[in-house]
Amino acid sequence: MQKKDISFEDNYHYPFTLTQKEFLIIDSQKKMDEVFNLIHQKNQGNRYAAIPTVMENETYIIIKPHLKNSNDVIIENINLNKNILYIKIKEFENPDFSKRSRISPNILLKLLDRILIKKIIMKH
Score class of each variant (00 low, 15 high):
Asp33Pro: 00
Tyr48Thr: 11
Asn94Phe: 10
Ile120Lys: 08
Pro95Gly: 03
Leu85Cys: 09
Lys119Leu: 08
Glu91Phe: 08
Pro65Gln: 04
Lys31Asn: 07
Ser104Pro: 02
Ser70Pro: 03
Asn81Ser: 14
His40Ile: 00
Ser28Gly: 03
Ile107Met: 02
Ile39Lys: 02
Phe97Trp: 08
Glu9Gln: 15
Asp10Lys: 15
Leu108Cys: 01
Phe36Val: 01
Lys64Leu: 06
Lys21Asp: 12
Met122Gly: 08
Lys110Tyr: 05
Ser101Ala: 07
Phe92Leu: 12
Gly45Glu: 08
Ile26Gly: 06
Glu76Tyr: 08
Arg114Asn: 13
Phe92Arg: 08
Lys21Leu: 12
Ile117Trp: 07
Pro52Thr: 10
Lys30Gly: 09
Thr59Glu: 02
Lys82Leu: 12
Ala49Gln: 15
Ile117Asn: 05
Leu24Gln: 10
Lys31Met: 08
Asn11Gln: 15
Glu34Gln: 09
Met122Ser: 07
Ile87Gly: 01
Ile78Val: 11
Asp113Cys: 03
Gln20His: 13
Lys90Thr: 15
Leu18Gly: 03
Thr59Leu: 02
Lys110Phe: 05
Arg114Phe: 13
Lys99Ile: 13
Gln41Trp: 10
Asp10Gly: 05
Lys110His: 07
Lys82Arg: 13
Ser104Arg: 07
Lys42Gln: 10
Pro105Gln: 04
Ile62Phe: 06
Ile121Arg: 12
Asn83Val: 01
Asn79His: 12
Phe36His: 00
Tyr60Phe: 12
Leu112Glu: 11
Ile89Glu: 12
Ser101Gln: 04
Pro95Tyr: 13
Lys88Cys: 12
Leu80Pro: 00
